[in-house]
Nucleic acid binder design. Structure first.
Lengths: 179, 179
DNA sequence: TACGGCATGTAATCGGTTACATGATTTA
DNA sequence: TAAATCATGTAACCGATTACATGCCGTA
């Protein structure tokens, strides 16, 4: 039971469905997009494949509508709830930045002149946008899910750090316009 | 040329070999472990498979030793250098946190009592260790690769933010020992 | 020359991504 | 009722991870 070899996305599905008391793959997509999707994305098709796997493992139950779209509505089984709890209690490993922008910065000595400046400007822009979104959510009180509210806090810290970092990189480049 | 559908690991290989003027898969592993590996990891076998793909694409050349271990030594071709440059000049996308610890925190309302405290303690520990490593590298002047030195700066900011964050989470939990 | 560990690779599997394809509702 | 969009899924491919398997080299 609770085969330890499930990936994080399996638990995301379990957690989302468990937290909302059941839903369809399409529901999952919408919930994810406005919550966990800010720091962990995956393609939509995953949200169709993963629940089926979980049904076969006995961690989810699916009920199919008769008429209309005949969509599948998933709910978590007791075994599923237990599997989630057990995963939650397993110590998490070291997270990785895995930032393509940093990667490019890392290899920038092999690049065309001016590349770092362009990169930094682009990254700065993206992080500022994301920061604005997070600040909006924080100001409006909360996200959509019943959750320990804190991950947003880390998001804010991370985006602020990123903005500061890329601004610094940009400032270190020759030839940037003073502003 | 320079098929735009190569993954980041392909460019890591190109960048590492390009930066060091050639080497074996084993060399790649060692270089990666002490540099880019701090924020972007992959299994060792990837460093054997990826170069072969790149040779077929004409981005790397391989020369095989005659005697001894008969290992393959890779060097970057002009086309490879060009492909790397072109990738470096492509704007990078939004990075994701993809932090399993945050994921668990996010779903912590469905967990066993005390889980958040255990999680936070574990994460705090990991981040403190990693921060100490980065500070050591920063103090000693530099890493092993000829590179734009800056990614380490982001690593420091990120680890400091993480330490602050998990400390905060821990402080918000009932029942922790005061220290 | 035997042994231990360093070094080097291959094979099989599997999750994740892209691309494709269709049906249901709504609204003009 | 036609068009547009929302919603729902499947199929095929490919990169990445795990597991397996073996060969060289220094040293005792």
């Amino acid at each position: 039971m609770s085969d330890a070899t499930l990936g994080p996305s399996a638990y995301i599905v379990l957690g989302l469905i468990g937290g909302c008391g059941g839903g369809t793959s399409y529901d999952l997509k919408r919930w994810a997009d406005t919550s966990v999707g800010y720091f962990w994305t995956f393609p939509r098709s995953q949200l169709y494949a993963e629940p089926q796997r979980l049904v076969e493992l006995g961690l989810l139950e699916s009920r199919q509508e008769d008429g209309g779209r005949r969509r599948r509505i998933y709910t978590v089984t007791p075994a599923g709830r237990e599997a989630l709890r057990s995963w939650l209690d397993t110590p998490a490993g070291q997270p990785e930045l895995r930032d393509e922008g940093l990667l490019k910065l890392f290899f920038s000595t092999q690049a065309t002149p001016g590349m770092v400046e362009r990169l930094a400007a682009g990254q700065l822009d993206l992080h500022q946008q994301r920061l604005a979104i997070y600040e909006g959510i924080a100001a409006s009180g909360h996200g959509t899910m019943p959750t320990g509210t804190d991950p947003l806090g880390m998001g804010l810290l991370y985006e602020r750090a990123s903005v500061a970092f890329w601004r610094e990189v940009l400032a270190g480049q020759p030839g940037q316009v003073s502003s």
